[in-house]
């Protein structure tokens, strides 16, 4: 029970930090309004999906280094398929790309289970492979996205009965993110499968002895990670209108947000809410730095330093929380 409160306390603290950052933002830039919040939500979208992808795998006791490369591959695939195609064709592209993410993610899991090579090496090798595949699909940034898809993240969602000023604070991108994550995460969390994912992350041997199909659960966890990464790749294509074959900084960002979100890198602990709030925190820090008129390249340095510091802090906590005799 105490652990429940501690975990929820972490998420609540993170949320307080987010509110605090919003206040700081408002102080720096008194004109910060709903439109800026909308662009923040759009910027968060690919990061949030990358973090969701990483979270599922980390909870299952693994790590997925191929997240960013998977996003690049799915993004260029979507962009090149929609290039010059009709608007209706995109209706076919979206499920195809999502299925591709699911299958490639499952391939990660299958390779880990079959070859018995540690996840970090398998996903590193897959990082090379997926990056290469992305370059084969599209040699340089290009492609296109369907107009209705682009429109799906711009603007706000009209909610009946809500005054206009409040409505302006509900950007479509945020609604899309929440809906996508809830559709996948909530049923999973409540199902037997979700419990199995937590079980193999917490103690694989104990899970195996209590009859959890460890191999199958691991493959499904990686498949879900691939699905989230594909959503991230799609959102990249949608928000930029093109696909870029070079992976963005999503791998480090996803690990940093997972750590900041209270999910232990050892596995078995935490939820999806914490990491998602953490992503908003990290993005908002970037917004603030930009608003302070700091050179974007310097912003990149500060952002990288913050992420490295967060990961270092997380590793330090993990090391400390282990019993004294059990340090590896």
């Amino acid at each position: 029970m105490s652990r429940f409160f501690r975990n929820q306390g972490w998420v609540a603290g993170l949320f307080a930090l987010l509110i605090f950052l919003f206040v700081v933002t408002k102080l720096i830039q008194p004109g910060y309004g709903s439109g800026d919040f909308g662009s923040l939500a759009r910027a968060v979208l690919p990061y949030a999906f990358a973090v969701a992808a990483q979270t599922v795998v980390v909870i299952a006791g693994g790590i997925d280094l191929s997240v960013a490369a998977m996003m690049a591959l799915t993004s260029v695939t979507a962009a090149s398929m929609m290039n010059g195609a009709s608007e209706e064709y995109a209706l076919f592209v979206v499920p195809f790309v999502l299925a591709m993410g699911l299958v490639l993610g499952a391939l990660n899991g299958i390779l880990i289970v079959v070859t018995r090579v540690p996840d970090i090496v398998v996903t590193l090798a897959m990082l090379f492979v997926l990056q290469g595949a992305a370059l084969l699909v599209l040699g340089a940034p290009g492609g296109a996205a369907a107009e209705w898809l682009k429109a799906s993240v711009i603007g706000t969602v009209p909610i009946p009965g809500l005054p206009d000023w409040a409505d302006a604070w509900v950007p479509k991108a945020l609604v899309l993110l929440v809906v996508c994550l809830c559709i996948i995460w909530i049923p999973l969390r409540r199902s037997r499968l979700g419990l199995s994912i937590y079980a193999i992350g917490s103690n694989e041997l104990a899970a195996f002895r209590s009859g959890v199909p460890v191999a199958r659960t691991r493959i499904i966890a990686y498949a879900l990670s691939g699905l989230f990464a594909a959503l991230g790749g799609l959102s990249l294509t949608i928000s930029t209108g093109i696909g870029a074959p070079i992976p963005g900084p999503y791998l480090l960002a996803s690990v940093a947000a997972v750590v900041l979100g209270g999910v232990a890198l050892g596995g078995g602990k935490g939820g999806l809410l914490g990491p998602i709030i953490a992503v908003f925190v990290l993005r908002l820090v970037r917004t603030d730095l930009t608003l302070l008129a700091i050179d974007p390249n310097v912003t990149a340095i500060i952002e990288g330093a913050i992420m490295v510091a967060v990961v270092m802090f997380g590793a330090f906590i993990t090391m400390r929380s282990r019993p004294a005799g059990a340090t590896p």
């Binding site: 090379f128 492979v129 990056q131 290469g132 992305a134 370059l135 084969l136 074959p245």
Partner: peptide, 8 residues
């Protein structure tokens, strides 16, 4: 791209 896949 093919080379990277092969190296992986």
């Amino acid at each position: 791209g093919g080379r990277r896949i092969l190296f992986g």
